[in-house]
Amino acid sequence: MYQESEIVSLLLALFLTPVMARSVRSIQMHGKAWFVAGYLSVVAGYVFTIVEGYWLYDLFNALEHLAYTVSGVWFAMGGLALLRRSRASRADA
């Protein structure tokens, strides 16, 4: 079955994600797409962790953990994009 904290996290995500999407578009930030992908992967993990309590536990549990891992990769890529941007700015200066 599911835990209450998992439901709360999912509801927060489902409620805030559409609202945040509008603001995300206006942000000018290098690596933004990687960070967004990382965030969405985490949200996908929230979904999988709820689904695993009802259907194909092993598969969705694995997908949940995989989603978190992939999210870590995307965040790392976003960080690298920011670092490259920083170095390029210093080289221009």
Partner: peptide, 30 residues
């Protein structure tokens, strides 16, 4: 296998944490 995936995830987030920590605060857009 799930434990391996979790370890890989922890490593990925650790890398992300280090990389973002290395980015100067005055980087445009940050």
């Amino acid at each position: 296998p799930v434990a391996l995936i979790d370890i890989a995830g922890a490593v990925a987030f650790l890398v992300a944490l280090v990389v973002v920590a290395l980015v100067p605060s005055d980087t445009p857009g940050l």
